[in-house]
Design a protein around this nucleic acid. Sequence first.
DNA 1: AATAAATAGTTTAAGCTTAAAATATAAGAG
DNA 2: CTCTTATATTTTAAGCTTAAACTATTTATT
Lengths: 160, 160
Amino acid sequence: MNSVTDHETCLVESDHHSLKLWLRLLTCSSLIEKKLRDELRLSFDMTLPRFDFLSQLERAPDGLTMGELSKRMMVSGGNISGIAAQLVDEGLIDRCQVPNNRRTFIVTLTQKGRDEFETIAKTHECWVIEMLGQLDQDDVKQLMNLLLKVKNTVLTDPTF
Amino acid sequence: MNSVTDHETCLVESDHHSLKLWLRLLTCSSLIEKKLRDELRLSFDMTLPRFDFLSQLERAPDGLTMGELSKRMMVSGGNISGIAAQLVDEGLIDRCQVPNNRRTFIVTLTQKGRDEFETIAKTHECWVIEMLGQLDQDDVKQLMNLLLKVKNTVLTDPTF
DNA sequence: AATAAATAGTTTAAGCTTAAAATATAAGAG
DNA sequence: CTCTTATATTTTAAGCTTAAACTATTTATT
């Protein structure tokens, strides 16, 4: 059992349970992320950040500002600028100025972007279901609850 | 409540629960990882990958091969080569050939590396406890269990 | 109106990460 | 012993990511 080598390998009794929890969390998300990256690359010549970017826009029919994208994707503003430039080049998004604020840009999916996203998203969801769909409904419900607690606990850390 | 903007923002009812679970997992580990990165940089001018590297070695008194480090850190071999080169330059690790196999290298902590790691590790554990220590013991136990299920479910995905 | 402070986004330099190709060595097959 | 295959690691080129510095614009203060 558990013959896999990962972040948790060689933890000892004395390590704090918070640390163990963090490393297990990290192992799980690394595993899933790696699988999704590989599949996206092999099947669609797409990267995870680019897919995430399109994905955020698809959920926001009116488009998003660069800043809002940065928050939702939890990455730096500079990162967003770079990815946006690529996606504009590829014709997948539009990046237009808004009337009353010359600093702000609104990014939206082009039709091509919407089409491409839809194709990939279907398969992407299948991959996720392949990986996680075997879990009990009860377990999933509990996990969602507990992870929400984790998220809120982390966010209320005063040193955050 | 939940006024934070992250990977989960704007998910809709129809999204599959597996997808929602994945995004919540991603949000949690992104949050924790970001905090640890920032603190390591500000307090110790250290990066997370370098710290992970030292951390793996500290748990392996006899040292590890490059390949074993690659597996435990869940990153590519090339990545390990690069980080190892830096740490050798900084005098934190040794990288020596083994007698009977001229392909293999064994990496170990130097005394300087052990000292530096120990200093940082103490504080690192505090940060993790700050973020996760408020959780109920029961919740932590359940989470560990459920995340183990996730890990095993993901690993037994036949397409993996 | 002039100045200061805040906001939105981009650029830059450095480090991380990967896949694929390359190098070197070891082990196995005939 | 030679040839093939497998193993261990490094190199390379491309893309991701960030913090910090920078530009431009807007808002607030005086």
